[in-house]
């Protein structure tokens, strides 16, 4: 499973790089030491920064949710053009087609690499629901659910397979 996970990270390295950048920035903002900042590695922390666990609920939520949010927003911005221009309407212009195909690959990779590592997801759960206050529990729950489920899906390579399925469906449908 780890081999497949690492394989999908290498295939989608632009998204992995960007996610690492967001994680690193969140770590720096919260003053959390980063033990290993390699972008790609051959273990389950591939495409994640190895850092110390965040001591607060806000920090634990930020390291899981902020990179996911930013990657998702960027993936959406990148996917709009290709989905309309390439998959739905197939505009017949080679320059536009080429740019949109690369944009779609970036969008694909950003989505595939949007969710946090399982360690971060578990730490988020711990900090929010054992140490967090009532407001944190209320406001962070929707984000927590998405990130928590997504972390496991990503770890098993399901997000990659889902994105691939959507791509195939679009190719068949249009």
């Amino acid at each position: 499973m780890t081999k497949f996970y690492v394989f999908t990270r290498y295939l989608t390295f632009p998204g992995a790089f960007v996610r690492c950048l967001w994680e690193q920035m969140v770590c720096r903002i919260h003053g959390v030491p980063m033990e290993d900042t390699r972008l790609l590695r051959r273990d389950e922390l591939c495409s994640h920064i190895e850092h110390e666990l965040f001591p607060t609920a806000n920090g634990a939520f930020a390291i899981a949710f902020v990179p996911a949010l930013f990657n998702a927003v960027l993936a959406f911005l990148l996917a709009v053009g290709p989905v309309l221009g390439v998959f739905v309407f197939r505009m017949n212009n080679p320059i536009v087609f080429a740019v949109q195909i690369v944009a779609y690959w970036f969008a694909f990779s950003l989505y595939v690499n949007s969710y946090p590592s399982i360690e971060d997801a578990l730490n988020m759960k711990e900090k929010i629901y054992k140490e967090g206050n009532i407001l944190q529990k209320i406001f962070f729950t929707p984000g927590f659910i998405g990130c928590y489920i997504g972390a496991y899906l990503e770890r098993w390579g399901v997000t990659f397979l889902l994105a691939l399925a959507v791509l195939i469906l679009m190719l068949i449908r249009f």
């Binding site: 632009p14 950048l21 980063m34 033990e35 960027l74 911005l77 709009v80 690369v102 944009a103």
Partner: peptide, 29 residues
């Protein structure tokens, strides 16, 4: 030292490329 680990150049480059691509893609759209 670990708290201030420098940002990785490939990651910064990937982000810049992402923004450029998003801009180009939306422009064509």
């Amino acid at each position: 030292v670990m708290k201030a680990a420098p940002l990785r150049f490939p990651a910064v480059l990937a982000l810049i490329l992402t923004f450029l691509l998003a801009g180009a893609s939306l422009y064509f759209t």
